[in-house]
Computed example of a mutant assay.
Amino acid sequence: MHLRPEHAGRRLDQVLAELLPAFSRSRLRTWIEQGRVSLDGYQPRPKDRVRGAEQVLVRPLIESFGACLPQPIPLRVVFEDAHLLVIDKPAGLVVHPAAGHPDGTLQNALLHYDPRLAELPRCGIVHRLDKDTTGLMVVARSLLAHRSLVAQLKARSVKRDYRALVVGQPKASGRVDAPIGRHPTRRTAMAVVAGGRPAVSDYQVLARYRAHSLLGVQLQTGRTHQIRVHMAHLRHPLVGDPLYGAGARCVAAARPELAAALRGFPRQALHAIGLGLIHPASAEPLHWQVPMAADLAALCVLLQQETEDAATET
């Protein structure tokens, strides 16, 4: 490509970052230092000033991000284009390979769905859901999208709406502004701790049952286990949460069917129902919403039936 007159007098790395927005300036600077950029046939430095008419040749180096292999794992695709892939993640699907989960993950599934994702950091995954949390996730399919989504997440402009079934009756709405860090004694758990990373969750009660509540929760930050930790901090843990909800299934239920469903609910009752962001290429505001996960929806039906029975009896 050729530089234009309006580029004259500017640093080469600045000009390339403007012309190649899919790549970060630091990445472009590294390529220049590695000799992967030529300017009229010679190898420049990142700080070199350009005249504004040179021919630039860039030979990108796309790093390999691990030995994750493609696996034919079904994906529920809600939206896709050249830049984005939005999926509805099922319960039980781990996002990244890790100790105890070397494969069978979302990352393996993505590589099978689109092998070109191997060229992106973590195959385009820019945020995560816990293994047993269901619902919407967005994946970048281009470097432009990856940079944009990371920036939007950092700026807290990505809208993430959840449904959480909790024990008890919290007040109608509220904000939990409590820092989260590693639990001081439980290695696999997080906790509200002094000196933790800032964490903010907003919630509203959407339905009240006899001994439970269905909440809409909006994340303002994205800390590990944030909703689970914040709800437990309020003493309204999520139903079925094995890490933060000890005893949450054991609330007495009048209907045997409901009691069995609460005891047997196999995961934390949390679902990412809505997702909103700005399209990386078109700058169009986008929003997606999916139905509540079937197991959680069925449990809410049983809770509503019990609540109606109790009201009739009184």
Rank of each mutant, 00 (worst) to 15 (best):
R255A: 11
R249F: 01
V94D: 01
K47I: 08
R235T: 10
A283N: 14
A189V: 10
W288N: 00
I125F: 03
A172V: 09
A293W: 03
T188E: 14
A248L: 02
G216A: 15
K154C: 08
Q107C: 13
A254V: 06
A252W: 12
L111Q: 01
G195R: 04
A248K: 00
A246D: 10
R29C: 08
Q55C: 14
A109Q: 01
E313S: 13
T188R: 04
Y244N: 02
S24T: 06
T312P: 03
A145K: 11
V50P: 12
E313H: 11
V192L: 03
Q304C: 13
G174C: 01
M1G: 07
L206K: 14
P242D: 07
V139W: 08
I87E: 01
R25W: 08
L110V: 14
Q43A: 15
Q289D: 10
G135T: 04
Q55W: 15
G247R: 10
T221I: 04
A261M: 04
L75E: 00
V78K: 10
E33Q: 14
N108S: 03
V86Y: 04
V205K: 12
L117V: 09
A98G: 15
L258D: 09
A246M: 02
R163S: 07
L69F: 04
H96A: 02
A254N: 10
I180L: 07
L28D: 04
A253G: 11
R141K: 15
R59C: 08
A194G: 12
L243T: 15
R263F: 05
L144P: 00
R128P: 06
G264T: 03
I32S: 07
L12V: 07
Y162T: 06
N108Y: 09
L215H: 03
R36M: 12
A67P: 03
A82Q: 13
G245F: 00
R4V: 14
S157D: 13
D295C: 09
R175I: 15
R141A: 00
L153K: 00
G216R: 15
L106C: 09
P97T: 04
P60M: 03
D88I: 05
F23T: 07
Y244R: 10
A151K: 08
E80I: 02
F265G: 02
G276Y: 00
R210I: 03
H146F: 15
L136K: 14
K154W: 10
M1T: 14
H271D: 04
L234M: 08
T185N: 10
L286E: 00
A67V: 11
D132G: 03
R186G: 02
I73V: 00
E308R: 11
